[in-house]
Design a protein around this nucleic acid. Structure first.
Lengths: 338, 338
DNA sequence: TGATGATTATGTAACGTTTCATGTATCTTT
DNA sequence: AAAGATACATGAAACGTTACATAATCATCA
């Protein structure tokens, strides 16, 4: 009767049930308690609609069952996909996830890392391309898609093999002269690996290729100009194009449509990432699929792994190819994982 | 010297600075404190690298500066976009966001609502199509895109006007006979409004139209069959198509490509949602754009608005049209907001 | 029956904050 | 110079939980 509108506490439950505070705690935590006591406490919990206060719990235990995810955004499909799978992997283990979209801003990233520490999160998973970020010593940290030095484990897909696979697929589909398009920060070394793998694949399959690479801040229009320059008498010089990610592939598809080039009839297009529109089908484009669900699982496992010594500095996962309507595949086989 | 590896507390700072506990608290919270004291405390904070423990703070204040977002996933572009903007709106106000992906599972949704209460979040923003969800009384709740009864405020875009706008745009672009495609749960009444608006627009602009509507669980293949049935002598019966969302529009585009129908040359395609691949350009398709950033802002404002009486039961925001390469627009004007 | 031991409930201290009543020092005022 | 007013530092109590030392209960056996 003392408190009017605030939520009931263990003390209230104890009074209601006529038992001691510690007994309620034991019941709530499933520790051994006499049967008659347990029943009375459970009855009182129901009656008062008691909910445990996990912040008091966290204060006492110095453990919060919360992990922070630092990611540029959830708006670009690949990031959204990754955030989703990391969220699932954490919730499965009864961990909560704090989302912190950084917009790839270094200052924001640093601020949010501090914020995460203040929240006493049990760990941080970060997707950041900022090389000189100060990572907290005593908070476990796992990096995704970008190596941040030998002390911090990194989870990524096999970007080199992915580039190679793209070249091989284009060769299998009958291409002879192909193009590689790439945009994005030079700081990020992953696209470089895709490029290297692609070049390697072209060489081994005797494909000739050209490249168009633009820097941060440059306009995508340059790609359209590049493509237009390679059209003569209504015909594109390439019969295959590999784009460094699905977003660029999508842009390229629209550009080709504007230029009157048909996809996949005139030119076949492969992207990278494996982003989709729905659950189990409908890839944005034919693409090299990153095993995002597995990457998320491994991130979480690595984060909770105690001994630093056994943590590998880099986990590199295999990629697969999937048809998404921008290539002339006869098989429309869908890979198993989302 | 007492504690070896645990983080420094206010008590440690007070001892280091030679002041009282309460003084440290005031300095940390920016309350008035004598200049000499402030300097000593700030020095001690730096020296010990003190970080406030926000869980102890939350316990004391019964306020956590945390909001939970319940959303089916962040993988589908529209949800990812919404999550991103809500995250931004909360972080801007120095609130943290707990992400809870529900996969539209009612049991999960209920479980996560309970979880959110236990975390003593200051409010919940939910995107759920579950009509019989038990919403906690004392935790502020705002619904997005779906009305959950008169007691819970809902934020949505003007779906009726959006459908109407789609019809008008197709008419402006020279279409005469168009189609409406729709999939998804019948529980969700928003697509129904889009349909009603579209029909209304077709009537007022003298467009003839056909519809293909499939139910939950039905295969998207049915749309492809429908389209195939409306092709005779290589020509599609429609010169314009309106899809209930961008995902379906994307599927339709691929299906048309398989059927040898060119987009936008042979048929113009408009989706709904305004999802993109990059920040400020590159819509997935020509589309009716939901003002997601504004919706997010209003959700957060409504959540923190004290008096229930002034809370409107439904906030309905205006939509715009944007070209995304699947229509024959002469103007490529981009709307202002992301 | 009374002592012994096993079992289990009890109640207090502690986690790191904030708040508030108390006390001390400095400054005005006449 | 003394007294009242002001300003501000102090330290204890409280938030809701867990853990541990203590106490109470009960059954067993000599």
């Amino acid at each position: 009767m003392k408190k009017e509108n605030s939520a009931p506490t263990m003390k209230d439950v104890a009074r209601e049930a006529g038992v001691a505070l510690g007994t309620v705690s034991k019941v709530v935590n499933g520790l051994p308690v006499g049967e008659s006591y347990r029943l009375r406490v459970e009855e009182a919990i129901r009656k008062l609609n008691y909910q445990i206060n996990s912040y008091a719990q966290g204060l006492k235990a110095n453990k919060t069952y919360t992990v922070a995810l630092l990611i540029p955004n959830t708006r670009e499909p690949f990031f959204g996909l990754l955030a989703y799978h990391i969220n699932l992997a954490l919730l499965k283990r009864h961990y909560r996830m704090l989302l912190l979209c950084t917009d790839s801003d270094s200052a924001q990233e640093q601020e949010y890392i501090t914020m995460a520490q203040q929240n006493k999160v049990d760990g941080i998973i970060g997707l950041t391309y900022n090389p000189d970020l100060i990572i907290e010593e005593n908070t476990p940290f796992v990096s995704v898609d970008r190596s941040l030095g030998p002390k911090i484990p990194c989870v990524a897909c096999d970007n080199f093999a992915g580039g190679q696979l793209a070249a091989e697929k284009l060769a299998d589909l009958g291409c002879r002269h192909v193009a590689f398009l790439r945009a994005g920060s030079a700081l990020n070394n992953e696209p470089n690996k895709r490029k290297a793998g692609f070049e390697n694949g072209c060489l081994s399959r005797s494909l000739t290729y050209e490249m168009k690479i633009i820097n941060d801040g440059d306009s995508y229009e340059e790609f359209e100009v590049f493509l237009k320059e390679h059209i003569s008498e209504g015909k594109l010089a390439f019969d295959g194009i590999f784009c460094v990610n699905d977003g660029l592939a999508h842009f390229t598809r629209n550009a080709l449509s504007r230029l009157g080039v048909r996809v996949p009839q005139d030119v076949q297009l492969i992207g990278f990432d494996g982003t989709r529109y729905f659950g189990n089908s409908n890839y944005i484009c034919s693409t090299i699929v990153q095993p995002v669900a597995e990457m998320a699982e491994i991130c979480v496992e690595l984060l909770f792994q105690e001994s630093m010594t056994t943590k590998p500095p880099l986990v590199c996962l295999p990629v697969t190819y999937a048809c998404g309507g921008t290539t002339l595949d006869s098989d429309f086989a869908e890979p198993d994982q989302t």
